[in-house]
Write a protein that binds this DNA or RNA. Structure first.
Lengths: 145, 145
DNA sequence: TATTGTTATACTCTATAACTATA
DNA sequence: TATAGTTATAGAGTATAACAATA
């Protein structure tokens, strides 16, 4: 029996449903990866460094929408765990060039494996077309950032 | 010129794009309502109390996915600002029954007006059909919470 | 015993400002 | 002077555990 309670003015708001949907994904993501110690921003960084070896720390932040100041402790965490290697960029000694270590790449792959299951769980009941449609619409929204 | 930088394994993940899109909406929402002091959870509570006068505090939390412990300070904030009235429920003296005050209803409406503009901004370039499609897909995702 | 609201607390993510070292 | 990374700090949202009053 569906609740008679109503959400009133929230009902037509994309922002509200985006927030709830994102929260649901985040909670399940955290569950899926708890014992790895990898959280959403850390996984995103691993993925971007993997896709762009030697990328500079600040550029990773720009791509992911993470402020310089907040990148510092995240990168520290990854380097201290031996997942990311940080080298002074030869052409600009202010900057750090980032690369995954072997362990980092293995961790990325293990996380990706679990995240695949997590996504399947969250999108159960969605056709492939619906998934693609959602992805496309979200990409367009995120461009407004 | 589009960046040659790639987001690698993040590209096909609905969860990643959901997080970025939600973040973009949240930032613009905050901008739109800064001077009102109303934040996303506060607006959601006002909307639900408005739609369900006399609703109990715990039920509001259940609908919105806000934990009991976290509801307390939010409701305190709204009552201290004179936007919500909190009455001991006559049939269960452990519970509080909530209602909007006149000021609360006025604030809700002012926020709703601004949020309408905020949503239009964030969804500029979306057809009405696309907006509805996105809303429907997000509702289905949020049900997995 | 179970539930409602409460308190205390901790963790994560995000934001700003001021500093340093390089450019 | 501008930029990359850093430090310090604060705000907001969310999570858990333990407690009092009431059911």
């Amino acid at each position: 029996m569906p609740s008679k309670l109503r959400i009133g003015l929230l009902a037509p708001l994309v922002g509200y449903h985006l927030r709830r949907a994102s929260g649901a994904f985040s909670a399940d993501f955290a569950d899926a990866l708890t014992d790895t110690g990898i959280r959403q921003p850390l996984f995103a960084i691993l993925a971007v460094v993997d896709a762009n070896p030697g990328i500079k720390q600040g550029v990773v932040g720009n791509i992911l929408g993470i402020k310089r100041a907040n990148m510092v402790s995240l990168i520290n965490e990854l380097t201290e765990r031996g997942l990311v290697e940080r080298l002074v960029a030869p052409e600009d000694r202010r900057a750090f060039s980032l690369m995954l270590t072997g362990d980092g790449r293995a961790m990325l792959m293990e996380c990706a494996r679990r995240i695949e299951a997590h996504e399947a769980r969250m999108l159960a009941g969605f056709s492939e077309g619906e998934r693609e449609m959602l992805l496309g619409l979200l990409r367009r929204v995120a461009r407004k950032a």
